[in-house]
């Protein structure tokens, strides 16, 4: 009987440390805590004023809900397009990845636009307590959106440029994670500021 070589399957490659994903998760947590902390200050300051029987917003100021609703709906849509971008990259589908990323960026810019439109409608001075809180919180969130968009764009181009492979798209997954946390922060702001006022 001929001697047959027993070929064992190759051992799996050692797990690549997911440094970028872990670092992004930690950074996103930090950014989320900054927003949540600000919202906490907002709710506390508002409760103090309301408990005295006074109105929270200065006379003549108003926060229309429609642009805020549009912004949160657009952000939720961008969660789908971001997921689509990650999925397309994992399948090495360059065209779909670019399309999904472009859509995500479009949605992100639309949210920035909706928020800046909201600013023009509020008629709220920065010098007032509600004004400084609302502008700081929403401004911080806009900065988070810009960071998330730049991060997603850089990671998509790097992945498609060959830095990551289809099976290994940690960079874009990390950018998507940051984006999802940005959406969660938007939801907190929508409920605490725009709905509660």
């Amino acid at each position: 009987m001929a001697e047959t070589a027993i070929a064992l399957p190759a051992a799996p490659a050692p797990a690549r440390p997911r440094v970028l994903l872990v670092g992004t998760a930690l950074s996103a947590t930090a950014a989320f805590m900054a927003i949540v902390g600000l919202v906490g200050i907002y709710l506390s300051a508002r409760a103090d004023v309301v408990s005295t029987g006074a109105a929270w917003l200065p006379e003549g100021s108003n926060i229309p809900l429609t642009p805020a609703n549009m912004a949160i709906a657009t952000m939720l849509l961008s969660a789908v397009s971001m997921w689509w971008a990650v999925d397309a990259v994992s399948r090495n589908d360059r065209q779909m990845a670019y399309l999904a990323l472009a859509l995500t960026m479009f949605f992100g810019i639309a949210v920035i636009n909706a928020t800046s439109f909201l600013y023009t409608q509020m008629d709220l001075a920065v010098k007032t307590t509600p004004g400084v809180l609302i502008y700081t919180i929403t401004g911080a969130h806009l900065a988070m959106i810009v960071v998330g968009l730049v991060y997603a764009a850089v990671m998509t181009f790097r992945t498609l440029g060959g830095e990551y492979q289809g099976r290994d798209h940690e960079g874009l997954t990390a950018a998507a994670l940051f984006w999802y946390v940005t959406i969660a922060a938007q939801a907190v702001i929508w409920l605490a500021i725009y709905v509660t006022k």
Binding site: I35, G37, I41
Partner: peptide, 12 residues
């Protein structure tokens, strides 16, 4: 989880 809250307060 705590210092970003301080960072936010300082921005405010």
């Amino acid at each position: 989880v705590t210092l970003p809250v301080l960072f936010g307060l300082l921005v405010l």
